[in-house]
Structures are given as C-alpha cells and as structure tokens.
Design a binder for these strands. Sequence first.
RNA 1: CGAGGUGUAACUCAGUUUGGUAGAGUGCUUGGUUUGGGACCAAGAAGCCGUGGGUUCAAGUCCUACCACCUCGACCA
Length: 467
Amino acid sequence: MKEITSMEKDFAKWYTDVVKKAKLMDYSGVRGCMILEPYGCAIWENIQKILDKKFKDLNHENVLMPLLISESLLQQEKDHIEGFAPEVAWVTHGGNEKLEERLCIRPTSEVLFCDYFSKKIKSWRDLPKLYNQWCNVVRWEKTTRPFLRTVEFYWQEGHTIHETEKEAREETEKMLNLYFDFLEKDLCIFTIKGQKTEKEKFAGAETTYTIEAMMHDGKILQSATSHYFGNSFAKAFGIKYRNKFNQESFPYQTSWGLTTRVIGGIIMTHGDNKGLVLPPSVAPIQIIIIPINLKNKEIIEKSLKIYDILNKNFRVKLDLTDQTPGWKFSEYEMKGVPLRLEFGPKDLKNNQCVLVKRNTSEKKICNLENLEENICLSLDELKFELYEESLKRTNDLTYLIEDNFEEILDKKYGFIKSSWCGNSKCEDLVKEKYGVTSRCIIKKNNANKCPLCGENSSYNIYWGKSY
RNA sequence: CGAGGUGUAACUCAGUUUGGUAGAGUGCUUGGUUUGGGACCAAGAAGCCGUGGGUUCAAGUCCUACCACCUCGACCA
C-alpha cells in the first residue's frame, strides 16, 4: 500500500492522501461533486448532532426549503445576485423552455427564506422567527478540492428575522460565539474571531463576522460566518409588518452557516504524517479495541467484555478481523481514532490493557478495574493537547507588522496582524503585491498609522493567505 | 477561468521512443502457518488500456474532440 506523502514534502498531496486513506470521501463522475463515504458521513453527522442541539437549545427550529429557485426570485436583491451570479447552476428541464421561467439550484437560500417570510410575517407578534436548515447547495466553483471547495456541499444555514436592529445584531454575535465555542471545545481548533472588510463580506450583508483558523501549513481557513443583514433584504422582498404602534415596519435579518469545509479544517489542523487525527467529540470511533492473539479464546472473550462495558458510554469498535495487529494499528491511525486499546496475553495475565493516544503515540498500561476513568482522562488529555497545539501554532505564526511589513507579508503564510486605515485601496495593494487577503478586523484602533499608506489607522486587522 | 500534469486490474505504476497475443507489485478469494508496529507459503480470480470519433492490414501506443482528477494562479464557504 502506498504511504501517505509527508506534509513537509508536499502539503497538498498529504491532504488528499489523508482524505483517501481515511476513507472520508470518493469522487463521483461529475466534476467537484464528492461522495461522502460512511466514515466521512459519520463525522458530519456528529458535527450535525452537536450543533443541532446547540441551535435548538437557543430556540431555533429546523425547516427545509426547496432545492430549486426561480430566476425572478433569485434576482430580487441586487447585491446578493451580483455576488452569486457567476457560480449559479441553471437547470435544464423538459417541456417548452421558452415559455417557462429558468430555474437554478440554490447556491444559498436567502431568497427562499425571504420569500417565505414575506408571506408569514404580518404583525410584530410574528417575530422573531429563528430558523435553521441542514441541506446541500451548489455553486459552480472553478477549481475544487475535497471538503475545502466542492461544487455541491453540505451545510447548515441559519436564517432569523427580528423586530429590532439590536436583537438581530445580538443574534449575529451570539451565533458567531456559538461557532467559536464549537470549534474550541468540540473540534479543538483555535480561531480568530472578527469582522470581514467591505470587500470580503457576504453578498447582500451589512456586516459579516467570521472565525478564521490557521492550518498546519500556515494558510488560513474561513471556518464559519455570521451575517447581519439589516433590513435591506426585507425591503427588497417586501417583508413588512405592523409594529406595536400600528406603523408599517421592515424587520431585521441575520444568517449564519457552517459547512463540510470544517472537516477539511479538522484534517489540516490536527492531522499528521500518519494520517487523520480526530477530536473525540466528532470521531465516529473514539476507541478502537485491538485484541492481540486471536487464537486465544480468553483474549477474545475478555475483549468482548471490555467492548460491552465501554460501548455504554463511548463510540467504540472491536476489530476481530484476521489482519495482523501492526496492520490494524496503522489502519486506525490513518483514520484518526483518538484512542487505541490493545489487549494481549500479557494484559490477560495482569488484568490490564494498553492505552495509546493517537496524537502522541504515548502508551499507558491501565488496570482494567479503573479503565473508564483512565479512558476519560486520556481523551481529555488528547483534547487539551490538540487545542493547545492549534493555539500554539497560531501564536507562533502570527506576525505583528510595525515597519518591516514587506518582509513579513512576503512570507505568505501565517497571520499578519497590523493596523489598517480602513481604505480598500490598501487592501487591494496587499492582495496584488503579496497574494495575501484580509481575514478579519478585530477592533477599532485609532492610535497607530496604517503601515501601507501612513494615514491614521482605524482598525486592527489580520491578513493571511486563505484556502 | 488561465498555465502545467495525469488517466492501463480494486490500488500504485511499467509498457508509448520504433503501432504487431495485456505486464508487475500491492490488494482480493481459498487453504495452511503466524499475531505487542503495515507477517509468510501455496494455488486462484481479476483489464473491450477514461469516453467518442479518425488514420491503419493492425492502435494502450499515432491524430482529434470531449470527460474526470491533481498542482499552481484568479474566484469562493
């Protein structure tokens, strides 16, 4: 079997090797459309389960909008359609096409939600509506890469509508924080949280917020976004209601989303040269039990008992196939299983087992009496270490621009933190000259000068080369 | 969408120079020996050479169009 290319040798090749070896996805016959194989699908399902609960705990309800959008509906909000037009997939359908209106496959569902809201919202009593949908969308991307950019991808898109600007802004911020916490606590990924510049914001949004994560190679992945729409969509779609003072009003909207791209983020944040490394919260298999001598009936029986005990509280698999132990070790390392439990003749004799953490390969002999405690401990350790590594990498590769910005921007990896005047001319210059784009604005800053033009600065900003 | 590369068995690839009976390793199946880091022996199955046209007595090999994948840009979540 071919080895995984080392990430130092060729990071892009390493990435696709890991994706294939871990059996996350396969290609279909259509460009950019991938098959989520059972293992990759299980990771996405775990992500869905965690987020769905968080959304519902905050009183969001799930809905399912249709796949197809009519051309006239899509074109109702000018900025929105301008942003998406080049990558919309149009459907050829039967019948007399000249008489029928063109249809497209949703690239995102703003217009569908807006159309729906315009029918449902008549009174202040109808507000707010807090909706979310888990679905697939299609964007005609020019180049595609597994998970990071595919023509069809899966995501959740939250769409909420509120009486006041304040409420909507609070929702936008709340959901951004929810994503930030999810990446930190569940995916063990440190992200930078901030606001997109005018140039980088979502088509049709008033403000776009983002969390940005640094990958192993120092490139940056936009991991989730949360948008404040103001009431421009409401105006474009005629979403009007009577407020408490019997006045006609336009409500305020938000949207927020996280996609299967985040799986690419997990791979490129935690993966190593042996393959995938999964945080326990989303790992389809959290513990793999590998019995050592399959001819020994006692070992099999005891392994089955261990499996039954652990199966109550963990996602656990017992591998009884006739592959050699060494083969199994490699297999589950490639698949990123957080914890391996070896059980062999020595262990049988001493009422123990061997626990091996995926990230460090550290072996620990563990008495079977307090197995579950030790497993919890090891999984917590692993989570902590994964997060710390992500945090450390981000800090190590964050450069502060003072006056040597040319040298720093030329590195083309890592985060570059600087003051910024807020002028898109400086943003364009950085992009053109250094191939680096603005990732996010973190706060107002009037103390310094913009290192690019020398004018008084307005913001602190992060730059980086993005995926 | 631009530049470059690739497509032959399930996987990785040789064969293309000079057109002439389809190859290897891994994997798979069966039987046996093994088992604490990708085991070994034996036998077996497996490919209209990405797809469609063309040139030729003869095409995996030459010509042509298309499709998919990879890398780097531009664009995006």
